[in-house]
Design a protein around this nucleic acid. Structure first.
Lengths: 331, 331
DNA sequence: CCCAAGGATGTTTACGTAAACATAGACGTC
DNA sequence: GACGTCTATGTTTACGTAAACATCCTTGGG
C-alpha cells in the first residue's frame, strides 16, 4: 500500500480511501491511485483488514463429511448464500464422529478466522466432548435436537416421514416397514419416530425397523431381509440411497416394485427420478436450509439477539413410480 | 493478550511464547500464563498472526458446485488432507460457469485470505475472462488441459475411458456407443476422445456420440435414442449418473442389461454397485486427487519450485453386472 | 480583499502478534 | 571473586490497514 501511495504521489490513507470507495477523493487523484494499484498489482491484505475491523467476514462449517448428499448440498447452499452476503466459507472437516475428533475440530476452530460457525454434526457428540463452543463465536446447528440450547435449522424430518407413511397407508397398505438410518443420527431417529407414530395412530402393526447406515449397500441388505417376508408390501426407507438398495434387493428376489411392494425414500436426490422404477420420495429443500443457516448466523453476527429455537423447513412428497396400491393378495 | 499478561504478571511476549510453545519459558511461569489464559478465555487472534507471519494457512477452492459427485469428493479430500497439514479450506463457489461469474470469483479471491488456490473449474473460462490469477497466489488446477501453463492434477481420464471401451470390445461387441458429457468439460472431451481413439485403432465403426449434461435425466434421454437402435449392444456413458439414466431407458424399452445391451459408466460412485444391474464402471480415486492437489500447493507455498505439468492419478475398471458378451444376434 | 466554511489530503495512532534485541540474574571456571 | 556465558524474561518494533484528527487549499460572501 505504501508503494502504491508513493507511486501515485499520495498518502497511504488516500490509497485506503480509494480501495474502500470512501467519498472525499477527487476524480483525478482516484484515477492516479487506481493506475498505481494495477501497475503494482496491489491487492489489499485481508489479514490487516480483519485485524483492523475485528471481523473476518468468514463463516466456518464443521461437518463429518461431504459424502452424504444432504451435507454437500447444504454446504453448497451455505457457501453460495454466504458469498452473496460478502462472507466466505471455511470448511472444517471432522474425520470420524468420535469425541476426540470433534474436540480437535473445535480446538482448531478456536484458532480459526471465523465470525460464526454452522455445525452439521450431531450435537450430542459435542456434549460428550468436554469442549465448549468458544464464547463470542456464534453458532447455528443443522440436523439436531439441540433446539433448547442453540438456534437450530433443520428440515421438517417428522412431517416428511409422516407424509411418506400416510401416502402408503392411503394407498391401502396394511402397514409399512421401515429401513432406518443409524441410531446416532438425529434425522434418522426423527424419521423413524414419525413412522412409528403414524402407524400407531392408525392402529397398524409396527414391526421392528431394519437398520442401515445411509448407504445403498446397507439398504440392499435390509431389503434382502424384507424381501423374505411375503407380508411386506410397503417400505419406507430413511433416505434415497438405502431405498435404491431396497429396490435392488426386491428385484433380485423377484418382488416387483410397485406391483408387489411399494417403496418410498427420503431426500429426493437428483438421481431418484431415474431409479427403476423412479422413486417416490420426500423432497428436502437443502438450499433453503443453507440459506436460513446463513441468515440466522449473520443476524447473530450483526448483533440481533438469537435465542435457541428450531426453524423447520417444510418438505414435500414427490410421488413417482415406486408406489402403488397393494396387489390383490393383500387387500 | 495484554490482559492475560497482566493477570499472569508477565509480559505479553512471554504469553506469546507460551501460546506458541516456544522454548525458554520456565515451568512455573508457563503454568501461571496457562491459568490466566483459560481464566480469561483467551484465544489467539488469527488475523494478527496472519498479518505478522504473512501467511494465512488457508487454501481456497474455486468451483462451480458441489453437486457433481466428483467435486464434492475431491473437495472433501482436499479439506481433510489440508487440515492434516494445518491448513483450512475456504470455499469459493461460482454460480454458473459464465465469464462474469468466474471473473467475480477471482476478484473476490484477490481479496481473500488464502495462500493458494485449487481451481476446479474449466480453465478456458478463466482464459476467456480477462482476469489473471493474482501474482503471488499459488495455483493448482484440477480437471483441465492447462498442463502447459499451470500444475494440473487430474484423474487419468483417457486411460480410464480406454479401459472401459476395450473391456466392451474384448467381450465381443462390434462397436461401442458413447454418451458424452458436455462439450465445455475437459474431462468429457478426454473420455470421448479416448473412446473414439480405441474404436479407430480397432477398426470399428465410430457412431456420433450422444451428448448429455452429466445428469441421470440427460442419460435417460440419450438412452431412449440409443434403445431405438437394435444394432446398439454396448454403451459407454461418461459418468455413472448418465449410465443410470441409460439403464432406465433401456429397461423401459424392454432391452435387457446386460443380455441385450452392455453398459459401462465412469466414476464408480458409491451407489453404482446398487444399480439394476450393478454397474461396471471406471473407478476414480478422488481422495488421491485431493491429496495431490494439497501436496502440490503446499510445495509451492513452501517455495519449492513447481512448473506446469500434469499429474495423472490412475483409474481402474470395476467389472460388475452391467456388461456381458453380446447375445447371439450380434455375433 | 479578508475570512469562514468546507472539501481534499496528510499524519498519527491502534488493532494483536511475534521477531529481534535488550536486560538481568544465575552459574561455572580460572 | 571477577568474568564470561547462558537462561529467563522484558522492551521495542513492524506487519498493513483505516479511523480519528490535523492541515491545507479552494471557494464564496461580506
Amino acid at each position: 500500500m505504501a508503494d502504491v501511495a508513493r507511486l501515485a504521489g499520495v498518502s497511504s490513507q488516500t490509497v485506503s480511501r480509494v480501495a474502500n470507495g470512501s467519498p472525499g477523493v477527487i476524480e483525478t487523484t482516484r484515477e492516479q491511485v487506481l493506475a498505481a494499484m494495477s501497475e503494482l498489482g496491489y491487492r489489499p491484505n485481508s489479514a490487516a483488514r480483519s485485524l483492523r475491523y475485528g471481523r473476518f467476514n468468514t463463516i466456518g462449517v464443521i461437518l463429518f463429511g461431504l459424502a452424504s448428499t444432504g451435507n454437500s448440498r447444504t454446504v453448497e447452499a451455505i457457501a453460495t448464500h454466504a458469498a452473496a452476503e460478502g462472507y466466505a466459507i471455511t470448511l472444517i472437516p471432522v474425520g470420524a464422529p468420535t469425541q476426540d475428533n470433534v474436540m480437535g475440530a473445535f480446538t482448531r476452530m478456536g484458532e480459526l478466522a471465523v465470525d460464526g460457525v454452522v455445525l452439521i454434526i450431531e450435537v450430542h457428540l459435542l456434549d460428550a466432548s468436554a469442549v465448549a463452543i468458544p464464547p463470542g463465536v456464534h453458532v447455528v446447528v443443522v440436523d439436531s435436537d439441540a433446539g433448547d440450547r442453540y438456534p437450530v435449522v433443520d428440515t421438517d424430518q417428522a412431517d416428511g416421514a409422516r407424509q411418506a407413511v400416510r401416502h402408503l397407508l392411503e394407498l391401502g397398505h396394511r402397514t409399512v416397514r421401515h429401513v432406518a438410518g443409524p441410531v446416532e443420527s438425529f434425522a434418522a431417529e426423527r424419521r423413524a419416530g414419525a413412522w412409528r407414530q403414524v402407524l400407531e395412530e392408525a392402529g397398524r402393526p409396527v414391526l421392528p425397523p431394519e437398520r442401515g447406515d445411509w448407504s445403498a449397500d446397507s439398504g440392499y441388505h435390509a431389503g434382502l431381509r424384507l424381501a423374505g417376508d411375503p407380508e411386506c408390501t410397503a417400505v419406507f426407507a430413511a433416505n434415497d440411497q438405502m431405498a435404491l438398495g431396497v429396490l435392488r434387493a426386491l428385484h433380485e428376489r423377484g418382488r416387483r416394485v410397485p406391483a408387489d411392494v411399494s417403496v418410498v425414500g427420503f431426500d429426493d436426490i437428483a438421481d431418484a427420478g431415474s431409479y427403476l422404477p423412479p422413486l417416490t420420495t420426500v423432497h428436502q429443500d437443502f438450499a433453503e436450509v443453507g440459506r436460513r443457516c446463513v441468515d440466522a448466523l449473520l443476524g447473530q453476527i450483526h448483533d440481533e439477539p438469537a435465542g435457541p429455537g428450531t426453524d423447520l423447513v417444510p418438505t414435500r412428497l414427490v410421488i413417482r413410480g415406486s408406489t402403488a396400491p397393494p396387489s390383490g393378495t393383500g387387500g
